[in-house]
């Protein structure tokens, strides 16, 4: 598709890109620390991924291949819309296949397929401050990060355990990066947290409305907060994916009727399709094949 005339390559002007690029380098130099940046108003609303879009626009080049997912799916409306935005403003190639992409912008998921060193993940972040729900004031949370004072977070997690028998955080589960900064991995399910730890891919996080950028370089220790007697664990399902039969992937629950009927399918649509192409079949497809 042709580039939209009248706008710079990838929409942002060069001065804005430079400002974001400088913030990205500092973010990489101090993993997990949130760098304030002068986020711009984008032609889509705050909350629609303006942070991720500004990061992608600042790093993307003509030869990049971009994949955009929302909830793990390439076909969700906002993922479609963001992909189209970059096709229009940068004229770049896009893909739905994880292995073909070298920049993957995401909201709420990390692909199931192992990432490579030549890939960059860009996360859309709503509230970058992991301590925000415990302490609404930026002046206070900034002090806590400076003093490495994370007692409040541990108290909160421990209260969960004493009240519910579980840590009641299931997504945006806080992590400690390189044993220094506590970081919000964005609202990915905690299922995806282990994928950040020592990943060969660079991970960049952009929060447009809150005007923060942060990063996890490759091969960085990222530890999901836990306790010796209550170690971190990820979600598991008793079911396999109804379409591809996968058992180790994150599953979405699909309500099939009004009478309690439901099935579970992979949230990562590309992963699921690949498995089906390779001949795997889950219960729903297997049953159909038998007819």
């Amino acid at each position: 598709m042709a580039e939209t005339s009248g706008y710079n390559f990838a929409y942002l002007d060069e001065q804005t890109k430079r400002m974001i690029r400088r913030a990205l380098l500092k973010a990489i130099a101090v993993p997990g620390y949130q760098v304030p940046f002068a986020s711009r108003e984008m032609p889509m609303p705050y909350g629609w991924g303006t942070g991720g879009i500004q990061v992608t626009a600042s790093i993307v080049g003509r030869d990049d291949v971009l994949k955009v997912i929302d909830q793990g799916a390439d076909d969700t409306t906002n993922a479609v819309s963001i992909r189209k935005f970059f096709k229009r403003t940068a004229g770049i190639e896009t893909t739905t296949q994880t292995h073909e992409a070298n920049i993957i912008q995401t909201r709420h998921r990390i692909p199931e397929e192992d990432l490579r060193a030549d890939q960059i993940m860009v996360f859309q972040v709503p509230i970058p401050e992991p301590l925000r729900f415990l302490e609404p004031r930026e002046t206070e949370t900034r002090k806590m990060h400076a003093l490495e004072e994370y007692g409040l977070m541990h108290v909160k997690l421990y209260e969960d355990i004493s009240q519910h028998g579980h840590i009641a955080t299931t997504y945006a589960y806080p992590v400690a990066v390189k044993q220094r900064y506590v970081m919000d991995p964005s609202p990915i399910p905690k299922f995806d947290n282990p994928k950040i730890n020592r990943s060969p891919a660079l991970m960049l996080f952009g929060a447009g409305r809150e005007k923060r950028i942060y990063a996890v370089p490759p091969f960085t220790d990222v530890h999901s907060l836990d306790f010796e007697d209550f170690p971190f664990e990820i979600q598991t399902w008793r079911e396999a994916c109804a379409l591809c039969g996968a058992t180790g992937s994150f599953l979405d629950e699909i309500v099939t009727d009004d009478a309690g009927g439901r099935m579970f399918v992979c949230s990562d649509t590309d992963f699921c399709e690949k498995r089906r192409e390779a001949g795997h079949a889950g219960p729903a497809l297997a049953a159909e094949g038998a007819v």
Binding site: N8, E14, R18, I59
Partner: peptide, 18 residues
């Protein structure tokens, strides 16, 4: 300027992250 700066930045980002 647009594309050369982009290419140089990607090298810088690659270097800084590795």
């Amino acid at each position: 300027p647009v594309h050369e700066a982009q290419a140089c930045f990607r090298s810088l980002m690659e270097a800084m992250s590795r």
